[in-house]
Nucleic acid binder design. Structure first.
Lengths: 120, 120
DNA sequence: CCTCAATATATCGCTTCGCTATACATAATA
DNA sequence: TATTATGTATAGCGAAGCGATATATTGAGG
């Protein structure tokens, strides 16, 4: 049972993750949930109360576009990324990589105080 | 003039950064501010309204410990990391590296849709 | 047939936290 | 003398992740 990351870590990258998943090919919410969970080795699980408001925000911002599919009994809302969404994704991904490198460097430069060898 | 990272990126790693800076050697708030700014190439600038409440939270959680220095005209509150703080730092740093790798992988696996070559 | 789990979306309200604005005080510099 | 840098603090705003809850359909097992 994989331990989930603490919520605050997700802030600032959830948009990015959802955008990148939808950028691959159109998806509906539940699928996105599954895909992110799987792709992260069950480390990132988006509860419905996180996922759907997030999708609504992305759509309001015109980064994704939705269309209902009511052909089956289970109604599904399919999302596809927009041109604006792709640009944002590229920018955010870049930002994120920069930030990650920045934090890593900062950690490396200060956390060089070697603790007692961890209990192997 | 370095462009700052968007605020949401900082959530979940600010604690970590401050802890790691203080872990190096005892610091007071203003110094921490300067050190993080410098170490990040001015990409991470902690406003006072972010920094001080954060330090108070860390102290309440017993991750750092403070002592006033009123010997000079400028009163300074020196912080040092506790044993508990070091453990937390080690854990959080590990968590963070895992998370960063996880997001990178996820991005790589979905953002392989090559956009038109960026205007070089 | 009935129950329960999985599928599928939605919203309310709580909580946390980064930030702006504001406040106050001292030291150095122009 | 005025402005800037140093140094700490808090009130309140806004954004966002999440648990709880609601609703509806489908499929599997007993």
């Amino acid at each position: 049972m994989a331990e989930r990351f603490q919520s605050d870590l997700l802030r600032g990258s959830l948009d990015l993750m959802v955008l990148s998943v939808v950028a691959g090919e159109p998806q509906y919410g539940y699928l996105i949930q599954k895909n992110i969970s799987e792709a992260s080795g069950d480390k990132v699980k988006l509860p419905a109360g996180t996922l759907y408001p997030l999708l609504h925000r992305l759509e309001t911002s015109r980064l994704i576009r939705s269309k209902w599919d009511k052909s089956t009994g289970r109604r599904r809302k399919w999302y596809e990324i927009t041109a604006k969404g792709r640009k944002r994704l590229a920018n955010q991904a870049d930002q994120w990589h920069q930030y990650a490198r920045c934090v890593s460097q900062l950690l490396d430069s200060f956390v060089t105080t070697p603790l007692v060898k961890a209990t192997s």
